[in-house]
Each structure stands twice: as structure tokens, then as C-alpha cells.
Write a protein that binds this DNA or RNA. Structure first.
Lengths: 116, 116
DNA sequence: TTGCTCCTCACGTCACGTGAGGTGGC
DNA sequence: TTGCTCCTCACGTCACGTGAGGTGGC
């Protein structure tokens, strides 16, 4: 598919999709015209990129993590080198902390809104 | 207190504290020397700023929200204009979605790390 | 030819990080 | 005077947004 369809399917802007490619997270083929051509698997890849970006992982790390993820029908399996695994374990801790922060923000807004 | 102590108490960089002031979220007094002088209540204010920034609210909105929050011993109460309340309700929805995204990221990392 | 989609620069934004160069109080 | 803390520029960063100006396929 071309970039417009991938953008529609994922809800991610074309600009962002080109940026992901520039950062080495996506590697579409090119048509003779120069148009980018994405495979059907790009949809799942983009969703994973968004998930990890939302978690605060930098694009460089995501580019390292993505090749470790293997599709298995509906689910995914993965293997990755030890050093990356240790880094990801730290990131997991930060994500859990971030969830707690967002819950605090939600509660703060509830206080502000509930006081009316 | 001066900026260094506020930074230590909150874990927020001096650069960030000056930025918060520039954006109208903090308004410290000045000593004759030009040094910023913060009241004890600045600690709570900075924590709330961080919470709302982590939730993705822009600094301009936070500057509007902060005056609505009144200290009540350990807890806080608040009142705010209708228009702001509607906006904050939308933000609450986004925060709840963001929590779900982070939980998805945590689960994805668990899959990657658990497969080893 | 028209209209839709795509392309590559390239500057702007937001919340800061990070020196550069200088000043104030004990 | 020394040393620690503070000050104001001002450029850099990260993940994009947003035109500017041009090209490709039905």
C-alpha cells in the first residue's frame, strides 16, 4: 500500500511515517515513481512504534527492539540480546511509574472537576 | 527559598523551574540581588505542574488551571470556569486513554522480556 | 487537462538540556 | 580572595506540524 492508506489505517500522519523511516524504524520499498510501498505488516509495526513512543522510548531504541519481535498469528514472540533486555527492564519500571503519574493526574482533574 | 533548594525538594531542574516561570506557571519574588525567592507553597505547585505536564497538558492550560486549585490542609479543592471545565473533561478522557496505552506498552515489553 | 496523491526541502513548535560568560553573599 | 549559588542569553534536541514548490497516475 502507499503512504496515504497506511496513514488512514493507523491514524498516524504521513509526516510521522516518513520520520519513522528516517529514524530507521520503517523500511518501505520504492516504486519507480519514487512513491513508498508498504507491506501489510507495516500496520502492526506502526502500532507497536506508537505504543513504545507513547511509553517514552526514544526512536533509536525502538529501531533496535522492532527486529526482536516476531509475528505469531495474533500474538507476538521475541528474542533480544542481553544488553537490550536489561535496558528494556529499566524502561518497564519507568512505564509503571508513568502509569501511576497519569492516575495521579486523572485524580487531580477529578478533584478540580468534582468540586464544581 | 532559592531556586536551588526548590530544585532539590522537587527533583525538577533549575532550567525547568525558570521555564515554568516564563510560561506563567510560577511567580517567585525577587531579592535585591535578582535571585528568585520562592514560598513554601511552591513545592506543591511544582508537583502539580509536573503531574499535569506528565498527563500531556500544555503549559498555557496548566497556568489557567493552577489558580483554580485551593489548598485545604492535605487535600485540595477547586473551582474553575465552565469553559475550562469542559476542556479539562476532554483531557481526562485523553489521560484515561493514555493509561491504557502505557499498559499496552508494559505488556509488549513483558512479551519481549518474557520470551527469553 | 483535471484532480488526487505523492515527493523533498526546510522552518516552526514544545519542554526543556547544556554550555557561555558574568555576578552575589558568606 | 575563594567557592558556591545564582543570573541571562542563546543554541541544541526530540518528535513531529505545516506550508512551499514540484511531480506521478488514472
Amino acid at each position: 500500500m502507499r503512504i496515504g492508506e497506511l496513514s488512514r489505517l493507523t491514524g498516524v500522519s504521513q509526516r510521522a511515517l516518513r520520520y519513522y523511516e528516517q529514524q530507521g524504524m520503517l523500511t518501505p520499498h520504492r516504486r519507480p515513481s519514487g512513491y513508498r510501498e508498504y507491506g501489510a505488516d507495516a500496520v502492526g509495526t506502526v502500532r507497536r512504534i506508537r505504543t513504545l513512543l507513547a511509553a517514552g522510548l526514544p526512536t533509536r531504541t525502538i529501531a533496535e527492539v522492532l527486529p526482536c519481535i516476531v509475528e505469531l498469528g495474533d500474538s507476538v514472540a521475541a528474542t533480544c540480546p542481553d544488553e537490550l533486555a536489561r535496558y528494556l527492564a529499566d524502561e518497564r519500571t519507568r512505564i509503571v511509574d508513568a502509569i501511576a503519574e497519569l492516575e495521579a493526574a486523572r485524580d487531580l482533574l477529578d478533584t478540580i472537576l468534582g468540586a464544581r
